[in-house]
């Protein structure tokens, strides 16, 4: 399937209650290398209860500047969480349904992400 189909989908728990919307999808590069780079496995989805958009990911990193934009966006995405692939029952362009007793994880990324600025 195409990834942006699932971005913005409504996320429901097994009882059908709305939890939020898919703000992002997290991948881990830990699969056997095809050729050049490790394969990218879907680890899970980031769910935001307040907004479907994902602008900067301030809720996922520790960037606090520029004030007050970083603070406002962090607040806007408050309550975001990560659900793992194992806890997803069905995934589609309208809705994503989670399994019963799913676990919500902290969405934080370690550091600033994989792409440190290349020092040219």
């Amino acid at each position: 399937m195409i990834l942006t189909d699932v971005l913005g989908s409504r996320v429901l728990n097994s009882e059908g209650d709305l939890l939020g919307r898919v703000a992002d999808a997290r991948f881990v590069l830990d699969q056997p290398p095809g050729q050049l780079l490790a394969g990218a496995r879907l680890q899970g989805l980031i769910v935001s209860p307040h907004s479907a958009g994902s602008f900067m990911g301030y809720e996922r990193n520790d960037v606090t500047r520029p004030w007050p934009i970083a603070q406002i966006l962090k607040w806007w995405h408050r309550g975001s969480f990560l659900v793992l692939w194992e806890d997803i029952e069905i995934m589609g362009p309208e809705t994503v349904r989670l399994r019963e007793g799913f676990t919500a994880y902290h969405p934080g990324l370690q550091g600033a992400g994989p792409g440190q600025a290349p020092q040219r």
């Binding site: 991948f27 881990v28 990911g57 793992l84 919500a104 992400g113 994989p114």
Partner: peptide, 30 residues
Amino acid sequence: MNRPRNTPTSLKSPPSVGGPVLDAQLHLLD
């Protein structure tokens, strides 16, 4: 759309993984 009221309150630390992590919106798309 109804405002979600069932947001989980306590979050666990994610399991450690064996490779770099990429968030599609933040690190790949566009």
